[in-house]
Amino acid sequence: MECGMRTVYVGNLPDDIRPRDVEYLFEEFGLMNNIDIKQGINGTSFAFLNFERACDAADAAHRRNGYDFEGELLRVELKDGKGRSKGNNKVFVKDDLEDERAFLLVSGFPKGTRWQQLKDHMRQVGEVGYCEIEDDGAQVRYLEPNDARTAVATLDGSSYMDRFLGKRAVLRVRFLHEVPPTERREASGRSRSRGGSHGRRG
Rank of each mutant, 00 (worst) to 15 (best):
K119W: 05
L49C: 06
H62A: 15
F51D: 04
V22I: 15
E28N: 08
Y130E: 07
Y9K: 05
E178G: 03
L118E: 04
S85T: 06
R18A: 11
Q124Y: 10
R163M: 13
K94Y: 03
M161A: 11
K79V: 04
S159W: 09
I35H: 00
N12E: 11
F29I: 08
R200E: 11
T154A: 11
R200T: 12
Y130W: 10
A58D: 09
F26L: 12
P181M: 04
L171F: 01
F69I: 08
E132R: 13
A58F: 03
I41P: 02
G4E: 14
T7H: 15
V91H: 05
E100W: 05
G66A: 05
H177K: 08
Q139G: 02
S193M: 03
A58T: 11
T182G: 05
Q139I: 15
E132H: 15
M5G: 04
S107M: 01
E134Q: 12
Y160A: 02
Q124V: 08
N146S: 15
M1H: 12
I37T: 06
G4R: 13
S85C: 05
R201F: 13
F92P: 01
F51I: 08
D96C: 14
R63L: 07
W115V: 04
D99M: 09
Y160G: 00
E2W: 10
V179D: 08
G4A: 11
